[in-house]
Every structure is written in structure tokens, then in C-alpha cells.
């Protein structure tokens, strides 16, 4: 049985305006997303900015209250669970953020930051917690002396290690990693990626790995889901997706990645235009609409729920893009 099952998840936000500040439109940040995630598995989530990938991550750990669909985590339906009902489950689902400088309290020492999860969950005595903090620092490759320091005393990569230590403190089952290396220097990115891979093997963690860099996502994931304007348009095992992309948007994304090898320069099919706004998205296939595809009209009214075209390879059955 899978650890996480997401079905038809919707996260809409009201857009308010006018004199009475009434909802005049709805921003469909996540609009009907379904997937499963097994134990020890990594699902990568890629897409351009504004596609809803971060919102999806936040909805899954219930930092947001979904407006539709369902989330089952570890046997519990958590879609509409109250704060108090969800607290005992929180220790099993954690999040790592993009900017470690902004996600660590600058006035707390590293010890305070790492002890807090235990305090919130009322775990261990004072002495035990002190011991656990040191074990956590060791696990993420930071010296024990770091415990008494403040976040600003560390480099970006080290700060992200603190963020990771906090996330693994309660031995969670699922970690949502939201662009965990985007803010880091190139030479430090690979250290942090390796740490995440090692921790996963050791602790049997499941990751939802969100990033805009496709090469990073492919490297970290068992399966990859491509998101466009609030929907998953294609989902497949990593190698399969890169070798055999079926959706036009996946192909466009792959084609746009700069390859670090000048011998592989190529003529590219450049994608035109920008990502449209998720407020009042077009009917039918949103990508076909952006591309002004001649067959776009045919996609209006068609059921675009993902269909399995090869083992584990799911794609939107859209008449214009697949």
C-alpha cells in the first residue's frame, strides 16, 4: 500500500476585488491532481514558476486547506482534518524549504531549532533531547560545536543541512523538499543532494522532490511528474520520461535545458510565450492553448484525466499535445 495517495486534489484561492472585497474570480493553483507515493520512493515534481508545484507541496503537508479532492497519508484521510487531529501525524511529514536563511529563526540557536520538534511533540527528557540534537548534527555532517551557534554564522549549504536536520528530527516517513538546492552554490548543491540520497537509504524516507531544474529532479527521483497550470500533464519513471516524453510540454521543457557539453549543441524548438495565469485558465488543454495548436479546439470538453500509455507512464490524453 502506498504511503501517500492524492486524488483529484484542488487548491483554489479566491481573488478578491471591487468595493466589497468579494471573490471576483478563482485562482486554480492546483486543479485536479492525482498520484501515489510509496515508502522509500521519490516522486519528482517539475514545472515552470506559477504551475502550482509549491502549492501542491504545501497542501500535502496540510499547511493549506484543500478546496477539493482527497489526501490519504499513512492510512488516514487528512484532507479536512483539524489542526489538533493532524498534529500527531505531523511528525511523520516534514518539509524542507528553498531558502534556509528564511526558514530558520534567526534569534534561535541551532540547538533551539533542532529541539523544537521534540518539544512540540512532547518527546524525551531534557538530557535526551540534548543528546538527540548532537546526533542530528552528526547525521547531517555538522560539528557538535554548531549547536550553540546562530543560523547566520553558517554558510548557505550548512544552513540547508540545519533545515534537513530539523526535518528528519522526528524520523518522518515523508519529506516534501521544495527546491532544496536552488539557492545554493553549484559546488555545494551536490553535497546536499548526496546527503538527501544517503538519508533516504538509511531511514527509508519518501520524498516529494519539487524543483524547476529538470536534471536535478531526474537525478533524485524514481518517478517524475510534469506540472502545467495546476495539472499534471505527464508522469513516468525518470528514465522513461526523459527517453520517451509523450506530452508536447514535457518535450519543450526537456529541449530548453542547457546541456553542459558544447559538443551537444543543437537547434532547438523554442517554446514561445509565457506561462498563462492560473486565474480563469483556458478551457481544454492549457498548453495547446498557449501554443495556439490548430487542434486545440478538439481538446475542449474532452476528459483530460491521465491515462496509462505504457507501464507506469501516464499522460493527458489530449488531441493536440500527445
Amino acid at each position: 500500500m502506498s504511503l501517500l495517495t492524492v486524488q483529484h486534489l484542488q487548491q483554489h484561492f479566491p481573488v478578491r476585488g471591487g468595493l466589497l472585497h468579494r471573490a471576483v474570480a478563482s485562482c486554480k493553483a492546483v486543479d485536479g491532481v492525482s498520484f501515489t507515493l510509496g515508502q522509500g520512493e521519490t516522486l519528482g515534481l517539475v514545472g515552470e514558476s506559477g504551475c502550482g508545484k509549491t502549492t501542491l507541496g504545501k497542501a500535502i503537508v496540510r499547511l493549506l486547506k484543500p478546496t477539493g479532492g482527497s489526501i490519504r497519508f499513512d492510512g488516514h484521510d487528512i484532507t479536512q482534518a483539524s489542526t489538533s487531529a493532524i498534529r500527531p501525524l505531523r511528525r511523520h511529514m516534514q518539509m524542507i524549504f528553498q531558502d534556509p536563511a528564511e526558514s530558520l529563526n534567526p534569534r534561535h540557536t541551532v540547538r533551539d531549532i533542532l529541539e523544537e520538534p521534540f518539544v512540540v511533540q512532547k518527546l524525551g527528557s531534557k538530557e535526551e533531547r540534548r543528546k538527540w540534537v548532537l546526533e542530528l548534527l552528526d547525521k547531517v555532517g555538522l560539528p557538535a560545536s554548531g549547536a550553540e551557534k546562530f543560523p547566520f554564522e553558517f554558510s548557505g549549504g550548512q544552513r540547508q543541512r540545519i533545515g534537513i536536520a530539523r526535518a528528519i528530527a522526528l524520523k518522518p516517513k515523508l519529506i516534501v523538499c521544495d527546491e532544496p538546492v536552488s539557492a545554493l552554490d553549484v559546488s555545494v548543491q551536490s553535497q546536499v543532494l548526496n546527503l538527501l540520497l544517503e538519508l533516504q537509504r538509511e531511514m527509508g524516507l519518501s520524498y516529494l522532490f519539487i524543483a524547476h531544474g529538470l536534471s536535478v529532479v531526474k537525478h533524485m527521483s524514481d518517478r517524475v511528474a510534469v506540472m502545467y497550470l495546476g495539472k499534471i500533464v505527464e508522469m513516468a519513471p525518470s528514465e522513461e520520461l526523459y527517453r520517451n516524453p509523450r506530452h508536447a510540454y514535457t518535450r519543450a521543457l526537456l529541449d530548453a535545458i542547457p546541456v553542459p557539453d558544447p559538443a551537444k549543441r543543437r537547434e532547438r524548438q523554442l517554446l514561445q510565450g509565457d506561462v498563462p495565469s492560473p486565474i480563469n485558465p483556458p478551457a481544454g488543454c492549457a498548453f495547446g492553448h498557449r501554443m495556439k495548436h490548430p487542434k486545440w479546439q478538439e481538446s475542449v470538453g474532452v476528459d483530460l484525466a491521465l491515462r496509462e500509455v505504457a507501464p507506469g507512464h501516464w499522460v493527458q490524453p489530449c488531441p493536440c499535445c500527445t
Partner: peptide, 17 residues
């Protein structure tokens, strides 16, 4: 150290210490 599209998924990268 950089992950590439043709590298093996989930293999450890050669990181600069």
C-alpha cells in the same frame, strides 16, 4: 559534480567538499 540528464538516477554525485 553537476547532475546530468544521462547520469544514473539516485546515484551519489562526485561532490566538491
Amino acid at each position: 559534480s553537476i547532475p546530468r540528464l544521462d547520469s544514473t538516477p539516485k546515484s551519489l554525485l562526485k561532490a566538491i567538499p
